[in-house]
Computed example of a mutant assay.
Amino acid sequence: MSLSKSKNKIQTAKPILPGATIGIFGGGQLGRMTAMAARAMGYRILVLDPDPACPARFVVDGCIEAGWDDSREAANLARGCDVVTLEIEQIAAASMEAAANFAPVRPSGAMLAIIQNRIEQKDWLRRNGFPLGEYRAVQSIDELRSAIAELGGRCFCKSATGGYDGRGQGKVGFAAGASFEDEVRGAWAALGEGPGVAEKAIELDREISVMVARAPNGEVKVFSPALNHHEDQILAWSVMPAPLPEAMETEARKIAEEIADTFQLEGVLAVEMFCTKDGRLLVNELAPRPHNSYHASERACVTSQFEQLVRAVCDLPLGDVEIVQPAAIVNLLGEVWLNEDGTAREPKFDEALAVPGVRLHLYEKHRPRKGRKMGHLSAVGMTAEEAVELVLKAKALL
């Protein structure tokens, strides 16, 4: 499946005004925060999620309990909505198509189908001239072995579908003393012994993301880049604006806007990028939804990513994305609620909230476990560095 590059097309579709109903595929924390922004604007919200206790359930008008591949319930969701969007990529093509029979689905199923598969996504980016690191698509362990050798022996390996926060990923060439064959077999197992991509390790300076919004009428707004810090392949903290040279920031924004226009995006798109030590920008991955790294937009920007998504899918004028003040977030994983022996503990939220400029955001997930995102802290500061310092200080007090 492919989408060809084309210029903005100004449409005359009627905006979907407050009082209408927005449907969301997914009731996780991103759906929850989108719903809260939409409700503040006067919209009603319905969500579809397989978890009867999903975080969004507590703040929406209705929740359909169904799987991502349940096309009948996807159609039922859309029947009660004026527009449907998503907060997770795992929605089946048949569900997207079924919903589209009853309401506009933004972003489109055609765009989602490309992004859902890392092989399709990278091939699409390459065909359309966007900067990428070297990679190979692999269908078997023999192809993986050959690809890693061709790419120099040090690679990150990722499953073609599913997987996030380090799941479905393996590394080769990083473990001292490990045999090449053992690492290849370990990486193949991490991929679920299925199709994937092998990516050549790059000399990385920093990681950033750029959020872009595009409405059906062709209007585009690009947020300032966010600087991201990962630990164990999970985002630990993020800050915006990212401290970047002006030329690199301009280039990053341009890449994101061109990807959105090429896709004819309707909604929001997070473009994850690598900044290499030799000054290049390379696209890592795309997420056609709100993004963990832009939670700070609620504190930093005139318009948050969540309100912007509502504006975009409803074809309203897009909001101002200027930075009002630097802001940072730090993720709160399940470990915050657990002692070293695995027993439960109560985080000291009162002490964290005593730090100036800090706010607490919890997702109403009731079962903490290692690696599970339970909430985040946010902080503002006079500079990006101060915002990071304050939010990390607050987390340390938990």
Rank of each mutant, 00 (worst) to 15 (best):
K370G: 02
K370P: 01
G375L: 03
G375H: 05
L362D: 03
V336Q: 04
E335H: 08
H366I: 10
W337P: 13
M374D: 07
V313G: 03
P347E: 06
A379D: 09
P317E: 09
E322T: 14
P326S: 13
V313A: 08
Q325A: 06
N339L: 11
R345T: 12
L377G: 02
G319C: 07
L353Y: 00
A312C: 07
G371W: 06
Q325H: 11
K365G: 05
V355F: 10
G357A: 08
W337T: 05
E340R: 13
L333A: 10
D341L: 14
R359N: 06
P368K: 04
A312K: 05
D315R: 10
Q325W: 05
G371I: 06
P356R: 04
D350Y: 15
I329C: 07
A344W: 02
D320G: 14
P317T: 15
G334C: 08
R367A: 14
P368C: 02
V324L: 15
G371M: 11
L318Q: 08
L316S: 03
V330I: 14
E346N: 13
P368I: 13
V310L: 07
V324S: 07
P347H: 04
H361Q: 13
R345E: 00
D341W: 07
N331C: 02
R311I: 10
L353T: 04
R372P: 05
V355Y: 01
P326N: 05
I329F: 04
R311P: 08
I329T: 11
Q325D: 07
R367N: 11
L362Y: 10
V310G: 14
L338I: 09
Y363I: 09
I323Q: 08
R345Q: 15
K370D: 11
I323Y: 06
L377M: 12
S378T: 15
G375K: 06
V336P: 00
L333P: 00
H361G: 08
H366M: 12
P368D: 14
D350H: 02
V313Y: 01
V355C: 12
P317H: 07
V336C: 03
G381S: 01
V380F: 00
G319D: 13
I329P: 00
L360V: 06
V321E: 09
A328W: 03
V330E: 12
H366V: 11
A354T: 08
E351C: 05
E322D: 15
L338M: 11
S378N: 10
A328P: 06
P356F: 11
D315L: 06
A312E: 02
P326F: 10
V355A: 01
G342V: 04
D315M: 13
L353H: 02
P356K: 15
R311T: 00
E340L: 13
G357P: 06
D350A: 14
D341K: 15
L360K: 05
V358C: 10
W337M: 02
A328F: 06
F349R: 08
I329S: 12
A352P: 10
V321G: 00
R369P: 07
P317A: 15
M382C: 14
A352S: 12
D341S: 09
A327G: 04
E364V: 15
A352V: 00
E322P: 03
W337A: 00
G342R: 08
V330N: 05
D350W: 04
I329R: 03
R367I: 08
V324C: 09
L332G: 01
V310M: 03
R372L: 01
A344Q: 12
E340W: 07
G375F: 00
G342D: 11
V324N: 12
K373I: 00
P347V: 12
